[in-house]
Structure formats: structure tokens, C-alpha cells
């Protein structure tokens, strides 16, 4: 086969869209629902531990959206960003739980409404 036409055929094949059995927007809808659950938890709950877990739910929703777009565009950058998000979530959980421990030691409570030391 002529190498030039081979390259052209391969380029055409690479450009041709493929049909996934699960469309992109199904994953995005799940991600949006999870993000809404997480942000509702952050807004409505006053227990510091539940708020931290709601933040984890939100981070997971964003990861799902990144991976869904990575599959759609056929490149790996979304996976790498997800990797970074997981690393940052680990750091955030460690710091957040240390803060909760310090808060409990001072106030004997983990209720965020009682964190008014900087008010007035």
C-alpha cells in the first residue's frame, strides 16, 4: 500500500467519531447530582466531620466529570488531573481532621456554629 494513503487513512480513522455505549452526559448528570448533594451538605450541616465528608463527595463528583471528558476526548490528561485531586484530597483530609481535633480540644464540640472566636 502507498504509505501516503496509509497515513491519510489512519488520520481519517482517528478523526472519525466513535459511539460509546454510555453517553457522556449520563456521567455528567451523575456528577452534577453528586456535587449538589455535597454542596447541600456543606451548606446545611453544622457538624464539622459531616461537612468534611461532603467536601469529599464534591471532589469525587469533579473527578467523575474529568474522567468522563478524558474518555470523550481520548486523552489521558483528565486522569492525571484526577490523580492530583486525589492527592490534594488526602492532604485536605489530614489537615481538616487535625483542625477538628484541635477544635474539639478547645470547645468540647465539633459544631461549626460555635466557631465565633473571630467575630466582634
Amino acid at each position: 500500500m502507498n504509505p501516503v494513503s496509509d497515513v491519510a487513512a489512519r488520520a481519517a480513522e482517528a478523526a472519525a467519531p466513535v459511539a460509546h455505549s454510555i453517553p457522556l452526559y449520563w456521567f455528567l448528570v451523575v456528577a452534577v447530582v453528586l456535587f449538589a448533594i455535597g454542596s447541600a451538605g456543606v451548606l446545611a450541616r453544622r457538624n464539622a466531620l459531616t461537612v468534611l465528608m461532603s467536601v469529599e463527595i464534591m471532589l469525587n463528583a469533579v473527578n467523575l466529570a474529568f474522567l468522563a471528558f478524558a474518555r470523550e476526548w481520548g486523552n489521558m490528561h483528565g486522569h492525571v488531573v484526577t490523580f492530583f485531586v486525589i492527592a490534594v484530597a488526602a492532604a485536605e483530609a489530614a489537615i481538616g481532621l487535625a483542625l477538628v481535633l484541635g477544635l474539639f480540644r478547645h470547645k468540647k464540640s465539633v459544631n461549626l456554629d460555635e466557631l465565633t472566636a473571630l467575630r466582634n
Partner: peptide, 9 residues
């Protein structure tokens, strides 16, 4: 997002 053409993996 229906118009985004999926690229082959």
C-alpha cells in the same frame, strides 16, 4: 454535550 464527537481511545 450531545454534539461533542467522541474520539477513539
Amino acid at each position: 454535550t450531545l454534539n461533542i464527537p467522541a474520539k477513539p481511545l
